[in-house]
Design a protein around this nucleic acid. Structure first.
Lengths: 190, 190
DNA sequence: CGTTTTATGTGATCTACATCAAATTTTAAC
DNA sequence: GTTAAAATTTGATGTAGATCACATAAAACG
């Protein structure tokens, strides 16, 4: 499906925009293509955009001092990704975003998002709705971390995002669950 | 300080509202007083409001099947609390909110928030800003959970919210950190 | 293809933290 | 102020999951 259509469907599920308004909104998004493994945001970068995925799969992640990686989010078509802390607060990236598969994204700058939000009340409403969703999801994941063991969290992940199983390596699943790859392997074998 | 003033300062830090607009917004908030230990939201309740704290300290928490409690958030004056999953999705509460100390809050219904957001673009902007903040904070806490041990998270909490140390029992700190009270005790003694 | 990375699986050992149990200190209630 | 209740500390023991080391399997790539 066309990137434009994916974005339009995504927005119109939540807000009303006529064709002219949508075209205007869309004109602020810049289509970009990336190859598997390519970085979209690297640690230390100035972060000026967020990315709406229209094809492929991204991950956003943190790498600690021991070079251990933790995955914050997988992003499939219809999802957004960025280092939001850096983006909102104008600081350098501590979170990376890169491509698990070849990917197509629509890039929206922070400045253009704010411009669109102030020009079109509906767009502001959309982004409030989106962050509300994200906030509730982050809280659920936090609770799952505190409450459940690795096996439980693994099953939860596969139930919530069955598509991931085929696309994403076990290592990355482990980095999302916050366990070592060895432990994840032992959850279903030995 | 007056509850009205606390809310006004809080809003005006982010958006512009003239006196008439603020009065109109404020007219939708219902002041309420609670005693230490009182529940504001109990598990299974229908959740129709969120609460802006103007005095005292609340906690929002989840209790699992083994009756173990996990604290999502402490709420001091200038903070908001509710079961947002329940509030936004019109489902029953799985998160409780109650009072660590005697407390004063301003209660805003979901319906009134949505009404104010649609009537006043600036209010919608405020709530988008607020949830953005919350989302980034939740992500940081998630990373801290994956990356840091209990001692590190304890020090992080005290650095971020030094006020809590005097108000909140060690048990509750432990429930926020996601460790047992025994482990927390051993972090600074034995 | 074959060769070289890169991902996965499995055993052995180690560690942070949980759990259970009981002593002690602090806070609340009458 | 005395008693009851709750919070905190401390010890002993158990366990999920980390880490290290190496074997195997599967991609990637010339």
């Amino acid at each position: 499906m066309k990137a434009e259509t994916i974005l339009k469907d995504h927005l119109l599920k939540i807000i009303d925009l006529n064709d002219e308004q949508f075209s205007y909104v869309f004109s602020h998004f810049k289509p970009m293509s990336f190859k598997k493994g390519q970085a979209i945001i690297a640690e230390g970068d100035k972060v000026s955009c967020e990315y709406f995925v229209t094809a492929g799969c991204l991950k956003s992640f943190y790498i600690n001092d021991d070079l251990k990686m933790f995955i914050l989010q997988f992003a499939m078509p219809g999802w957004w990704a960025s280092d939001y802390n850096a983006l909102y607060n104008g600081i350098k990236a501590t979170i990376g975003v890169d491509c698990i598969t070849d990917a197509e994204v629509l890039c929206l700058s922070n400045a253009d998002r704010e411009k669109l939000c102030s020009e079109l009340h509906a767009v502001e409403h959309f982004f409030r709705w989106r962050t509300n969703k994200g906030y509730v999801a982050a809280q659920k994941r936090l609770l799952s971390f505190m409450n459940n063991d690795a096996k439980h969290r693994y099953e939860e992940l596969l139930n919530t995002y069955p598509q991931l199983y085929n696309i994403v390596s076990k290592q990355l699943i482990a980095a999302y669950l916050g366990v070592s790859r060895e432990t994840l392997s032992r959850l279903y074998h030995g």
